[in-house]
Write a protein that binds this DNA or RNA. Structure first.
Lengths: 102, 102
DNA sequence: ACTATATATCAACAAAGATTGATGTGTCAT
DNA sequence: ATGACACATCAATCTTTGTTGATATATAGT
């Protein structure tokens, strides 16, 4: 639970950053794919989303920075996956079904 | 409740817009003031937030567009207030306390 | 009608974010 | 060690947002 006393400008800046990460439909789409498909490597994502690799890396980094997703390195591949808990901290349970269908 | 079938790209574009509205700490701050203080006119907001009128109007419009706030005209004044329900549709209950302290 | 106040809107500019193509780095197979 | 692949990062550019100061509109009081 967030304490009222935490709700200072610094906190607002943190949330600004998180909402900024969500304020792009490409990134929302990426999140949805990762949430529903699970662990996925960049090259597969690139195909699924029809996004060039470099653009994808750019957007993945933004989502990574605010911890909505995380990476695991396995040999040549980087597997990305969604962090349900971080997402659920922010979004209403109704909205979560955008990413996590019942 | 949002149906899985609604979760198409058009929907994502709608959410993109809502998150964009939240992705600025000035606007988050405006929301918080409106949520806690209730109905407030632009001139009072301008003082409370130390924002010039024109900048404030710009940000209010963005919040208005996505229905997080609404206006009532009364004589010379425009009174803005937060729309708790619209905000609660989007944000987790934890996060809502950013705006609506228990 | 005139003036003052409250607010919205506009045009010019500045700043931040996104896209593109190229280059760099690490890993694997040969 | 060489070549191919997976990916990150970078610099240049383009696009979108935000800011500023000025102007426009509406209302209220005199």
């Amino acid at each position: 639970m967030i304490e009222r006393s935490d709700v200072c400008d610094t906190t607002l800046l943190d949330y600004e950053k998180k909402f900024k990460a969500l304020s792009d439909h490409k990134r929302l789409y990426i999140l949805r794919i990762l949430a529903t498909e699970g662990k996925t490597c960049v090259c597969d994502l690139s195909e699924l989303l029809a996004l060039p690799q470099s653009k994808l890396s750019y957007h993945l980094k933004i989502l990574l920075d605010v911890k909505f997703i995380s990476v695991e390195k396995e040999g040549k591949w980087n597997y990305y996956s969604a962090n349900p808990n971080e997402i659920k901290k922010i979004l209403s349970s109704d909205l979560c079904c955008l990413f996590y269908p019942e």
